[in-house]
């Protein structure tokens, strides 16, 4: 699927993601984890934990963060920053909602 409207690419409908859940978007070699934290709140972040590369898309979502499924680091969805004593940062990508359509900034993917 490639529907480019300027830099924004449509990647799906908000209802494709369960609330407090996430889906993966494959972009070339990269995997992006797209999270939904509320009725109309989405975040996109690299699907790779700053600790040892764990797939963040598989973690539990809570309070604007995701807990990595491998060793429980807690990563902020808005900043990509590891919380608490852990240090590291996952890359984040701008997203936008157009009605129910989720748009991802394609520019940031390159």
């Amino acid at each position: 699927m490639t529907i480019a409207t300027g830099n924004w690419v449509a990647i799906g409908n908000i209802s494709d993601i369960p609330e407090l859940g996430s889906r993966r978007v494959m972009a070339g070699k990269k995997t992006i984890a797209v999270f939904r934290t509320g009725p109309s709140e989405v975040f996109a972040i690299e699907d790779s934990c700053p600790h040892k590369g764990g797939p963040l898309s598989q973690g539990i979502v809570h309070d604007g963060c995701v807990t990595c499924p491998l060793h429980n680091w807690v990563i902020s969805l808005s900043t990509g920053e590891a919380q608490g004593a852990d240090e590291g940062r996952a890359k984040t990508y701008p997203t936008m909602l157009d009605g129910e359509t989720i748009l991802l900034d394609a520019q940031a993917l390159t």
Binding site: M1, T2, A4, N7, V9, I11, G12, D16, I17, P18, G21, R23, R24, V25, M26, A27, G28, T31, V34, A106, Q107, L109, T110
Partner: peptide, 16 residues
């Protein structure tokens, strides 16, 4: 089903 399939697979010509 959503658990097992990616939501989208992008081909990035536009951006590349």
């Amino acid at each position: 089903k959503h658990e097992f399939n990616p939501m989208a697979t992008l081909t990035l010509e536009a951006a590349e």
